[in-house]
Lab assay of single mutants.
Amino acid sequence: EDGINLEEIREFAKNFKIRRLSLGLTQTQVGQALTATEGPAYSQSAICRFEKLDITPKSAQKLKPVLEKWLNEAELRNQEGQQNLMEFVG
């Protein structure tokens, strides 16, 4: 629908959760960090719904690039050390 690749979103949601957990981050931490930079659309409950795919494809499509960018950045910081990650997450 609307050129939205559901399979891709499903895959990303699954990987997002795995990668988030491997960084040792909670949904709350991700939500707080993103709410600070991106606004309330990225709250803990939004992250939770995204991971469960309990949102419309359109919403998922909107969240995905922001979550992807944030997660990549978080992983980079983590490679530089846990301290850097925690500063990034705030």
Rank of each mutant, 00 (worst) to 15 (best):
E1I: 14
E1G: 01
D2S: 11
D2L: 08
D2C: 05
G3P: 08
G3A: 11
G3E: 15
I4R: 03
I4T: 07
N5Y: 08
N5G: 06
N5K: 10
L6M: 14
E7F: 02
E7P: 01
I9A: 06
I9V: 08
I9Q: 06
R10G: 06
F12I: 05
F12V: 02
A13L: 00
A13Q: 07
K14D: 08
K14F: 04
N15W: 10
F16M: 00
F16V: 03
K17R: 14
K17S: 02
K17F: 00
I18L: 14
I18G: 07
I18V: 10
I18C: 14
R19D: 01
R19L: 00
R19K: 07
R20M: 01
L21V: 08
L21D: 09
S22R: 15
L23F: 00
L23A: 03
G24T: 01
G24Q: 00
L25G: 05
T26R: 00
T26W: 00
T28I: 05
T28K: 15
Q29H: 09
Q29K: 02
Q29R: 02
Q29D: 14
Q29Y: 06
V30S: 01
V30R: 02
G31E: 06
Q32D: 14
A33H: 09
A33W: 12
L34V: 06
L34T: 01
A36T: 11
A36L: 07
A36H: 06
A36W: 00
T37F: 05
E38M: 15
G39C: 02
P40W: 06
P40A: 10
P40M: 15
A41Y: 10
A41S: 12
A41F: 05
A41H: 07
Y42M: 06
S43V: 02
S43L: 00
Q44K: 14
Q44N: 06
S45I: 01
S45E: 15
I47A: 03
C48V: 10
R49S: 14
R49K: 15
F50H: 01
F50I: 03
E51A: 01
E51R: 01
E51K: 00
K52N: 13
L53F: 14
L53V: 07
L53I: 01
D54V: 03
D54C: 08
T56S: 14
P57F: 09
P57T: 09
P57H: 08
S59M: 13
S59L: 14
S59F: 13
A60R: 03
Q61R: 15
K62E: 15
K62I: 15
L63H: 08
L63I: 06
L63M: 15
L63T: 05
K64Y: 14
K64P: 06
P65D: 06
P65H: 08
P65S: 09
V66L: 05
L67S: 03
L67M: 01
L67T: 05
L67I: 00
E68S: 09
E68Q: 08
K69P: 05
W70M: 04
W70A: 06
W70L: 05
L71C: 02
L71K: 02
N72G: 11
E73S: 05
E75I: 04
E75Y: 04
L76M: 11
L76V: 13
L76A: 14
L76H: 09
R77I: 12
R77F: 10
R77G: 07
Q79A: 14
Q79N: 15
E80D: 08
G81T: 00
G81V: 05
Q83H: 14
Q83F: 05
Q83M: 10
Q83T: 13
L85T: 12
L85D: 15
L85G: 12
M86G: 14
M86E: 14
M86C: 14
M86A: 12
M86Y: 10
E87K: 13
E87Q: 09
F88N: 10
F88G: 12
F88R: 12
F88W: 15
V89R: 12
V89K: 12
G90M: 15
